[in-house]
Design a protein around this nucleic acid. Structure first.
Length: 805
DNA sequence: AGCACGCCGACT
DNA sequence: GTCGGCGTGCTC
């Protein structure tokens, strides 16, 4: 058993398999599946994952593992197996799946450096080299690659055998440590010590007394110095005498260090909640895998059901994973879990730094916590005795990873739930059609919560037809109804949330004389005007340029800004209601770390009357003084070329409406739209999921979309349009001729965004009911285009797309 | 992904 | 003749 099977850190088709390496004698028994190693690969050094250990290999000339990075496997058997499954399901590379399961800190960083191996030859080398190696024998490649002269001399010395190129693997995540002092004596020893010590050593005595007083055996050096306001010298003396020892001890960066969480007790459950929790508790008790759909409106008390289920799991000595959408990982949510379970909760979300995430992850890995609350990737938390997995707001699109591996957290959760024989609870007021259909079919168990807590009814919703407003001469972005209510709230000192799904100032800029539209030179997308910076930006590639005052095509100055973004609304409110205090939340105001939280806290403290924002304000917020919610244009999403657009609109509107009146004050909702008759708008205003579900299912069935059919989307991109069309054409022909006659292959068709960053994009959509061979055909396709994909051609395959772009 | 190897054009 | 362009194929 001295051969290791290693998956190396090269995400490419040709290297997506295990390579064999010799295990050096020193590492016998230590190299086991799931550990990370450093191995030579061609001329380089790479990080890799050991996936197997065997006693023989078919390869003649084996190289040996250079370094072992983990003493304990970083991926246990279950996770290795899960990684393989994810790879197969999503058609990605094994290495990508492994990396997706671990915190970024564990991903290697590579550096190329040159080393002077014969220092005695230095004096014969050019002065430039002598200077270069003056400080150290190794110099990073970055220092020389941009200096052609230096490069030449280095190359010559490499030829002479005096200098060598090394590829070093650098760890990214550093464990943060601090110095801790350990007290080695018993109390009695210490007392006799105190007597025998010289009276000169007053400071040292103080230190010993400190340990005796506090009855502790260890203390961080910093703490000791602060408490006794002493210096290093007495400590050093004690260390030399052997009374104290000093060690580096790992500490965790605690993102919630300065926050107190008030401990909460389980709340009495309503009858509905009790009915919902009974089957879950039953599954927990009997180690049964079952997927539940906790179907409850906003404010119906889903969280309490989660909390009490987890409590049961913890009582059994098992662990729990709670997934929440990235955006709702607000302090409010974290607070509820930390409040109930205290320090046994780890929190994982994108707001943490790489180091902080690593720390939280290690708490899980070392079983120091039993509960993890986190976004999508937390589904891979390395717990070994899972008792429950909860996915809150199951319908949220952020559970789908939009890069390789393109996995859906819900699928992973159910897979792990089956492995651990534990329940998976999906919670939502507006479940995805797929999930609700499965619940209806009995594949999942439906647990309804129909009533809002504290007998609060759903807020009243008014739909305003903006075409009507226009006919009556109201050209502003506020209907008279919404404006009236807005004024009313300002007078009553109550708060309003305004929702608009577009950032920036205006959505497109057109010349009224010749019809010229300002578009991105690299993407076929109109540019958005950002007024505060006087720039136009592309929301897809980030391109920006100064705003034009004259039409670039006909020089006319009849330039007009069409469409409305958050910036424009902010400005407009400023004009109409100058006394209103507004907080604007969109990508532009929340890109800095922590700003998201800061803005919400400010709003919660009543520092503003109006919260204006995009998508990101729709979820999870719960502010008692919000009594009015306005949706400025409900149909922005409705007309996207995506079979889920109605569903997404319905979910969003329902979600937003749920923000109003969650507490004592009754809430009102105003939805402005140009298509008031559309069923997603109408049914959302009535909070009527059931009818929406039936209506939408009819449409899905008619057009052969999920949940009736599976969908796979292939996107081809290349700088030349002819190439893109040709390849997409070939792919669809190939699939058509190989797949069953019930399967529908659509395309080639231009993608909804036909060009991004100078690359043309075409798509081919496969709709199928049963196609067991599909994955292998797609693999063959990828193999066939492998060479071209190493150059300009890009083919992405999404086995269950959530965005058709 | 890198990198070496290898085969064709413009130059000391 | 050689230096260097990037197409091709390999990495245990």
């Amino acid at each position: 058993m001295n051969i290791a099977k290693v998956i190396v850190d090269v995400p490419a088709r040709q290297t997506d398999r295990a390579f064999d390496y010799l295990i050096p004698e020193d590492y016998y028994g230590l190299v086991q599946p799931g550990v990370r190693v450093i191995v030579p690969f061609g001329p380089r050094s790479l990080q890799g994952f050991v996936v197997g250990v065997e006693s023989s290999s078919n390869v003649e000339k084996l190289k040996a593992i250079t370094q072992l990075l983990d003493i304990e496997p970083i991926l246990n058997e279950e996770l290795l197996q899960l990684g393989k499954w994810v790879t197969e399901q999503t058609l990605s590379y094994q290495i990508s799946s492994f990396q997706a399961m671990l915190p970024a800190a564990l991903k290697a960083k590579y550096e190329k450096e040159v080393e002077l191996i014969k220092p005695e030859q230095l004096s014969f080398m050019p002065v430039t080299l002598q200077k270069l190696f003056q400080q150290s024998l190794t110099v990073s490649w970055g220092n020389i690659e941009n200096e052609p002269g230096l490069m030449k001399s280095i190359q010559k010395e490499i030829g002479n055998g005096n200098v060598e190129v090394n590829y070093v693997v650098k760890a990214r995540g550093k464990k943060k440590t601090h110095k801790v002092l350990f007290f080695n004596s018993t109390n009695e020893e210490a007392r006799t010590l105190l007597d025998t010590m010289s009276s000169q050593a007053a400071r040292q005595k103080e230190v010993i007394e400190f340990f005796l007083d506090k009855q502790i055996k260890e203390v961080p050096r910093i703490t000791l110095k602060n408490e006794l306001s002493t210096t290093d010298s007495p400590i050093k003396a004690l260390i030399e005498k052997g009374i104290l020892t000093e060690k580096d001890k790992e500490i965790y960066r605690d993102p919630h260090a300065n926050r107190e969480f008030k401990r909460t007790q389980p709340l009495p459950l309503t009858e509905e909640q009790s009915n919902a929790i009974i089957p879950i508790l039953h599954s927990i008790e009997h180690n049964q895998h079952q997927t539940y759909l906790l179907y409850g409106v906003t404010g119906s008390g889903k969280t309490e059901v989660y909390l009490q289920s987890i409590e049961e799991v913890l009582k059994k000595g098992q662990q729990a994973i709670v997934l929440v959408p990235e955006i709702s990982l607000t302090p409010q949510m974290v607070e509820r879990f930390k409040g109930r379970f205290g320090s046994s909760v780890a929190v994982l979300h994108s707001g943490l730094s790489i180091g902080e995430k690593y720390d939280e992850w290690r708490k899980i890995y070392r079983k120091e916590v039993n509960v993890v609350v986190g976004a999508r990737s937390a589904v891979f938390a390395p717990f070994e005795n899972l008792g429950i997995i909860i996915i809150d707001e199951e319908h949220e699109s952020s559970y789908k990873q939009e890069e390789n591996p393109r996995y859906h957290a819900r699928d992973v959760a159910i897979y792990r739930g089956s492995f651990h024989q534990c329940p998976v609870v999906l919670g939502s007021a507006t479940p995805t059609l797929e999930t609700f259909a499965r619940a209806k079919k009995g594949l999942y168990e439906l647990l309804p919560l129909s009533k809002r807590m504290h007998d609060k009814g759903m807020p009243a919703v008014d739909i305003v037809d903006m075409r009507e407003e226009l006919r009556e001469g109201n050209r502003s972005m506020f209907s008279s109804l919404l404006f009236e209510k807005l004024q009313d709230r300002l007078e009553k000192k109550e708060q309003t949330v305004l929702f608009l799904n577009r950032r920036g100032y205006s959505t497109f800029i057109m010349c009224r004389d010749c019809g010229f539209v300002v578009t991105c030179p690299e993407c076929d997308i109109s540019l958005t005007y950002h007024r505060s910076q006087q720039l136009v930006k592309c929301h897809y590639c980030g391109y920006e340029e100064p705003v034009v005052k004259q039409c670039p095509s006909c020089q006319s100055d009849h330039i007009r800004f069409f469409g409305t973004g958050t910036q424009k609304v902010e400005e407009e409110i400023g004009k109409l209601l100058p006394e209103a205090r507004i907080i604007r939340m969109d990508v532009d105001t929340t890109s800095r770390k922590g700003s998201h939280e800061k803005l919400l806290t400010a709003f919660g403290e009543g520092k503003a009357d109006i919260l204006l924002g995009t998508q990101m304000i729709a979820k999870g917020l719960d502010f008692p003084r919000v009594t009015l919610v306005g949706v400025l244009t409900a149909d922005t999403m409705l007309h996207l070329p995506d079979f889920r657009s109605s569903e997404k609109t319905f979910q969003l509107l329902t979600q937003v409406s749920g923000r109003a009146g969650r507490h004592e004050l009754p809430g009102e909702v105003v939805i402005q739209t140009y298509t008031p008759e559309h069923y997603s708008v109408e049914l959302a205003s009535q909070h009527n999921y059931q009818d929406f579900y039936l209506r939408e299912m009819g449409i899905r069935k008619l057009h052969q979309y999920p949940p009736f059919f599976y969908v796979t989307l292939i996107t081809v991109s290349h700088p030349e349009i002819t190439k893109v069309v040709a390849v997409t054409e070939k792919i669809s022909t190939y699939l058509r001729s190989n797949l069953s006659s019930q399967t529908i292959v659509l395309g080639p068709a231009a993608s909804p965004i036909p060009r991004i960053k100078n690359r043309y994009r075409y798509q081919c959509m496969i709709k199928y009911k049963d196609e067991p061979q599909l994955r292998s055909y797609l693999k063959d396709l990828m193999d066939h285009y492998q060479k071209e994909m190493q150059q300009e051609l890009q083919i992405t395959i999404d086995m269950n797309p959530y965005m058709i772009m």
